[in-house]
Design a protein around this nucleic acid. Sequence first.
DNA 1: CAAAAAAAATAAACTAGTTTAAGAAAAGCC
DNA 2: GGCTTTTCTTAAACTAGTTTATTTTTTTTG
Lengths: 194, 194
Amino acid sequence: MDFSLIIDNINKHISLNSEEQDYFTSLLEVQQVKRRAFLVRKGEIARYTYFITKGCLRNYEIDREGTIHIGLFAVEDWWISDLQSFLTQTPSFGFVDAIEETEVMRLSKSNYESLFEKVPQFERFFRIIHQNAFIALKNRLIDNLSLTAEGRYLNFIDKYPQFNQRIPQKQIAAYLGITPEFLSMLRSRMARRS
Amino acid sequence: MDFSLIIDNINKHISLNSEEQDYFTSLLEVQQVKRRAFLVRKGEIARYTYFITKGCLRNYEIDREGTIHIGLFAVEDWWISDLQSFLTQTPSFGFVDAIEETEVMRLSKSNYESLFEKVPQFERFFRIIHQNAFIALKNRLIDNLSLTAEGRYLNFIDKYPQFNQRIPQKQIAAYLGITPEFLSMLRSRMARRS
DNA sequence: CAAAAAAAATAAACTAGTTTAAGAAAAGCC
DNA sequence: GGCTTTTCTTAAACTAGTTTATTTTTTTTG
């Protein structure tokens, strides 16, 4: 089993000795996720948080009108779950599913808690991960308030070029909060101008 | 000095003995904040996190066009700071200022850290506070994507009736991401209909 | 590889929200 | 208490983004 990606990810923020690394990896389970398969469904409790070793997942919610709103796209080297549900162990309001054939390493809530007890440095690690999620969310909120659809799209391409390649436009539109038709129009307008 | 409000706030999530309570309150400093005075300015490092005992504060950012975008309003019994700046001790992107004459109890970053060492339960307390901030932010993002301006306003009144009373409409409009003119129009339309 | 299904493009009619400008009301201030 | 500044209202012209419908292209699947 190849843990190098996840170990490197951890070591970006904390320093583990090999014993701690081994303990950590012993808590992980590998899971293959088929395209369109769900890792978390609305109403279920998110039992795991997931680290992506290959592929692409999304976290989204469906509103009263049935419209999809995307909270997060995640690719290799990212952590994803329905954070609210995972952290509070209450039923999820959203879904997590696979946009592509994906491989994840999952960590259960109980193992996550044990990890904090045995290797307290992980408190710091996950605090940083969650802080970064908060900061990203806040920046996105400000962007949504301050930029036009075109500005948000340019921003998205610039910030996440890797997503722009692999994620269907329809979903990028949902992420940006516009209709796919309008995104299509923006793209053709931008192509015409350049 | 009356610490009952802040002690009650803490005891909603954790249980402290009186020694721990005393240690905690010994780390606090009381500060009076005049209307329009700043607690955090863009470019400065947020040295404190603030608990409001009286009054109303806001956290906001100014975009490239000079438009104000409000991240958070907070009244009595709420914690506020520029979280990104406070937690990472890096220069703030936003401001925190007073909408009314306000009194806060502030906790410095270094005392915040000491608190974790001496009373580890506070790790849990602030984890919950930050989790709740994350959840609120995410819900707001989804609301911004899924509701019309009118829906967001109704939602706002319903969720924060106390804010609707004390906060100028102009600022509510900034929070909702619409112009004050449009909010005024919405209000008169709503009044006409009911 | 062909058929079916899903995604993307185009375009016209429409609507939610902005902009600009001017006047009325309310709040802050010697 | 009156003067100044800020906030709120109203309304008309405008623009960004939606809706609906049709066609084309791409992807999926047997």
